[in-house]
Design a protein around this nucleic acid. Structure first.
Length: 278
DNA sequence: TGCCAGGCCTTCC
DNA sequence: GGAAGGCATGGC
């Protein structure tokens, strides 16, 4: 078992359950089983130690540090944010220890296309069905798990096949984007090179990807922290706490106030707004 | 039953 | 270019 001493704030539960990832399970012993791109892990906190087991122990420490972004100094980021906006400190303290999980780009792309007008339960269910049918099986603790397939694995999946995975009307979006990737009409690696606005533009040329989905992909898979989604929860808290209404006004305020860390600030506000109900 | 879920596309002015 | 309606599915 890998034991990592954590000396900065780290909220494992909030990080896993706050809606950035969908393929995880909470176990009876309060540990979490999470399916990463290349392995399955079981994680829990034991005092100041993060404890991890996996079906694949190779380079596990680096994989975990990278996945949970453990070396990034969020305290410093929060200090910066609070310096420019005292009012965000409640939301930042509420989300203290929340890390941005570094997700695999292709899976993230599919995840957030499916997320449009959908519930968290349905999203996870569909992703698991896709993985079960087309992903690689791995055994961990005597149970079967399925890694998420890549674009090649999904090359011949039909609209009807996707419908059977309960993705509903998003079937055609998935088929189209997978076709484009396999025929070199769209390259996920290119997004690393582009600046934020170009990357957003390229993503939004794909059917099924609008500003919200594109922002989530760039934030969660590419660590483009300047990019941020504005949804109903963000609108709600910006109105009540900042007296700012309208998406454009929210965008210009966030850019001006939070700068390079707008995505992180907005995620804190989102998390606070959504989970701190009265 | 009806509404909503971290939207987006198409159609119609 | 902006508003309105439609869209699969499941949870409440």
């Amino acid at each position: 078992m890998l034991k990592l001493r954590i000396n900065k704030p780290f909220d494992l539960e909030n990080t896993i359950t706050c809606g950035q990832i969908f393929r995880f399970k909470k176990n009876n012993d309060d540990s979490y089983t999470v399916i990463l791109s290349d392995r399955v892990i079981n994680v829990f906190m034991d005092k100041e130690y993060l404890c991890v087991t996996s079906n694949n122990e190779e380079d596990l420490e680096n994989v975990i540090i990278n996945y949970f972004d453990l070396n990034n100094d969020y305290d410093k980021i929060i200090d910066e944010l609070v310096k420019n906006d005292k009012k965000i400190s409640n939301a930042a303290m509420f989300s203290k220890g929340l890390k941005f999980i570094k997700q695999e780009p292709f899976e993230t792309l599919i995840e957030y296309i499916i997320s449009a007008n959908n519930g968290v339960n349905n999203i996870g269910n569909s992703l698991n069905l896709i993985a079960q049918k087309y992903g690689k099986k791995v055994i961990f603790e005597n149970k079967e798990y399925y890694l998420f397939p890549n674009a090649k694995d999904l090359k011949d999946v039909s609209l009807e096949d996707f419908r059977n995975c309960k993705v509903g009307f998003r079937d055609k979006y998935l088929k189209e984007v997978i076709y484009k990737i396999n025929n070199n009409e769209f390259n996920l690696d290119l997004l690393y090179e582009l600046d934020d606005n170009e990357a957003l533009k390229v993503l939004m040329e794909i059917n099924g990807i609008g500003p919200k989905v594109a922002s989530c992909i760039l934030l969660f898979a590419y660590q483009k922290y300047k990019v941020f989604p504005v949804d109903t929860w963000v609108k709600k808290i910006m109105k009540s706490d900042y007296n700012i209404e309208g998406e454009e006004n929210i965008r210009s305020y966030a850019k001006k106030t939070y700068g390079n860390y707008s995505g992180i600030a907005i995620q804190y506000l989102f998390n606070y707004s959504r989970n701190n109900k009265e």
